[in-house]
């Protein structure tokens, strides 16, 4: 039995292979140069230089509001640990659904994370706020956005909205809709 002869490459085939190799080399050189030319400075430096905005990667816009007892609260007071800002109203069913989970997180994690509930007071009935807090046993700060300025600063388009801010004061996520305990915890592990 004779062994089958190995096929010999036709001249056209090797020319084709060279053409492909040249093309790949060209893509590598041009693409690689573009990657090097357009590389970014370190992420932390960029984030700190950005204007405050309710967008991932930006410093969180400042908040100065009165709490339910009339005390002035500043967001900057809580820098150094993760902060959750929850925008809510008493008439909003998903806000009612998620509030027990925020309270559970606050109870279990204590000082490891700050939870701030900003009530959309400009769209709510102020007399309903304290009964709502008592109904859900809320013990974290509840701030009153009487003029709607903080809602505007945070570009809140629907309730509830939750903003996840890391310990450097940088926004990491903006979530519109009801969140739950497991999801909050999973996000906090990355802050």
């Amino acid at each position: 039995m004779t062994k089958p002869k190995r096929a010999i490459s036709a001249p056209g085939q090797s020319t084709g292979a060279v053409r492909w190799l040249v093309l790949i080399a060209l893509v590598l050189v041009v693409g690689g140069s573009w990657i090097v030319f357009s590389r970014e400075p370190q992420q932390e430096t960029v984030a700190a230089e950005l204007a405050p905005a309710p967008v991932k990667g930006h410093p969180a816009p400042a908040i100065t509001l009165n709490d339910i007892d009339g005390q002035v609260v500043n967001l900057s007071d809580f820098q150094g640990k993760p902060v959750l800002i929850n925008f809510w109203a008493t008439w909003c069913p998903p806000c009612r659904a998620e509030m027990p989970d925020f309270q559970a997180i606050h109870r279990e994690m204590g000082d490891q994370v700050t939870i701030i509930a900003v009530n959309a007071t400009s769209q709510d009935e102020p007399d309903n706020i304290r009964p709502f807090m008592e109904e859900f046993g809320i013990t974290f700060p509840v701030l009153l956005d009487v003029r709607g300025q903080t809602m505007s600063d945070y570009n809140v388009r629907g309730l509830p909205t939750t903003i996840f801010i890391d310990s450097n004061g940088i926004v990491q996520e903006v979530f519109t809709g009801a969140v739950n305990k497991a999801y909050i915890q999973s996000k906090l592990s990355g802050l």
Partner: peptide, 19 residues
């Protein structure tokens, strides 16, 4: 994120699209 869901396994079926 099994540690986060351990105590509340039913939340694995929530409609939270980001999860």
């Amino acid at each position: 994120h099994r540690e986060s869901y351990a105590g509340v396994p039913l939340q694995a079926f929530s409609l939270t699209l980001n999860a």
